[in-house]
């Protein structure tokens, strides 16, 4: 039971970030590595603000806003300074490492004794007794569902249409008399905002900030997105955003299973990478087969 809860908890946290990666990777076709920096950025902001006495729920919004700003910087470097997409992300990711240390003050900051969105008097009153065990999962599920619905709704607006169009056919966006660069910047802002939001939630759940928590975020995000979208490709009624969330949980389950089989916690990043590679190879192989049959 505790393993399942653990999988759901981590899967849901990373699902928020994966929804952001879905925007950059699937919609914009932009390999955005800056999430490796914006995920811990959200954490650093949150720890600092909570220790300063701010309401934990309010830190979620601030984390999103600061992450979005960082996304704008990646976009600015790529669009206005004409640096390649991959490099723009690497530049911001690397710079954010130092920025995060500056914000948090040191590389490891615990705040177990402070309130968080998971541990406060309101939650304790609302979900008492037996429900307390699954309170974290319930709260996470609520956050994930809200984020998913907002994103789904956004993608149906005029602005959302334009975002989808820029990844699909840049020329058309120019033909519609819109600056395609600005549209990309908006997409990167939302994606990195979501990554920072996920980082904020992650820290509040763990009760500490750790500078290396962002390492491999993009790999996890991509794995979640690819598992989700490949798995539900043939099933039309499952929305891509739902697929990404389910993908995140499945991926986390695979990692947990590997650890359960005897791998050590320190092997986590190795497992993350190898699993991601396996997913890439398998999905490539399947595509080829489909083509041969066609």
């Amino acid at each position: 039971m505790s393993i399942i809860l653990g999988v759901l908890e981590e899967g849901l946290v990373y699902a928020i970030m994966a929804l952001g990666v879905y925007i950059t990777y699937k919609i914009l076709d932009f390999p955005d590595l800056s999430v490796d920096g914006t995920f811990p950025l959200g954490g650093a902001i949150t720890v600092t603000l909570i220790l300063a006495g701010m309401n934990p729920a309010a830190t979620l919004f601030i984390a999103f806003a600061v992450g979005a700003l960082a996304g704008c910087i990646t976009g600015f470097i790529h669009v206005k300074l004409k640096v390649r997409d991959l490099l723009s992300g690497i530049i911001v990711m690397t710079a954010l490492y130092s920025v995060n240390l500056r914000i948090a003050g040191k590389s490891n900051v615990p705040f177990f004794n402070n309130d968080s969105i998971f541990e406060n008097s309101f939650v304790n009153r609302l979900l008492p007794g037996k429900l307390a065990d699954i309170s974290v999962v319930i709260i996470l599920a609520v956050i994930v569902v809200i984020v998913k619905i907002l994103l789904d709704q956004y993608l149906k607006t005029r602005s959302g249409y334009l975002l989808r169009a820029v990844g699909d056919n840049e020329t058309l966006v120019t033909s519609l008399a819109k600056d395609k660069g600005m549209v990309k910047i908006i997409g990167l802002a939302i994606a990195n905002g979501l990554a920072a939001l996920a980082g904020s939630v992650y820290c509040q759940q763990k009760g500490f900030f750790e500078i290396s928590m962002g390492t491999g975020t993009i790999v996890i995000g991509l794995a979640n997105v690819i598992i989700g979208t490949k798995l539900f490709k043939r099933i039309g009624f499952v929305k891509s955003t739902t697929a990404v969330i389910i993908g995140s949980i499945i991926y986390k389950a695979c990692v947990s299973f590997a650890i359960y089989l005897g791998m050590e916690a320190s092997d986590l990043k190795l497992i993350t990478s190898v699993l991601f590679l396996a997913i890439l190879v398998i999905s490539n192989g399947r595509e080829k087969k489909v083509k041969q049959h066609a």
Binding site: Y154, K156, T157, R158, S159, G160, Y161, L162, A165, L172, S175, L176, A177, K178
Partner: peptide, 16 residues
């Protein structure tokens, strides 16, 4: 709907 929105603001109104 995209083509129809050309020249109008691409804001948070419904795309279609």
């Amino acid at each position: 709907a995209l083509a129809d929105t050309k020249g109008k603001p691409f804001n948070l109104l419904p795309g279609t």
